[in-house]
């Protein structure tokens, strides 16, 4: 399941949705949150813009790439857009597999590619009221090298 949405998500509901078959022996989930500090500056709010249509296609592609590498029985990727506040949930990736190794690896792989390929952009509002588009991190690009085949 892939969803780009404004509304919040419920981890328990998503976890239960992934428990869909008796062959599943492991579920790994990742949740990204709005942090109160970025590059040393206090953050109060975040707005998330995306490219409707391309974003969903890109997330489908990333999950397909993961399915080609690991045995995935069920997967969920949810990414929120719009106005968010500190501590809000931004992104959820959940992977159900027979064994934990595949689930851990696929979950990390999907997050690493999502951060560098999926067309989302964050704009932060600081506590002093100033706004700032978040710059892409070179370290996120470097992280991808570990997945080179």
């Amino acid at each position: 399941m892939i969803s780009v949405q404004q509304q919040d998500f419920n981890q328990q509901v998503e976890h239960e949705r992934l428990r869909c078959q008796s062959s599943i022996g492991a579920i790994v989930t990742f949740t990204g949150l709005v942090r109160d500090i970025n590059d040393g500056q206090a953050v109060s709010d975040l707005s998330l813009e995306h490219y409707p249509g391309m974003t969903e296609k890109c997330l489908v592609d990333i999950v397909e790439k993961a399915k080609a590498r690991w045995h995935i029985i069920a997967s969920t990727v949810i990414h929120r857009v719009g106005q968010l506040s500190v501590t809000d949930q931004i992104v959820f990736v959940g992977i159900a597999s027979q064994h934990r190794g595949d689930a851990f690896a696929a979950c990390e792989f999907i997050m690493d590619y999502l951060k560098t390929e999926a067309p989302f952009w964050k704009k932060e509002t600081m506590e002093n009221g100033q706004t700032k588009w978040v710059d892409a991190r070179e370290s996120d690009q470097k992280t991808l090298s570990k997945w080179a085949e």
Partner: peptide, 10 residues
Amino acid sequence: VAYFPPVTGG
């Protein structure tokens, strides 16, 4: 055709 800055989701 779309133009945009490097992405910063997640």
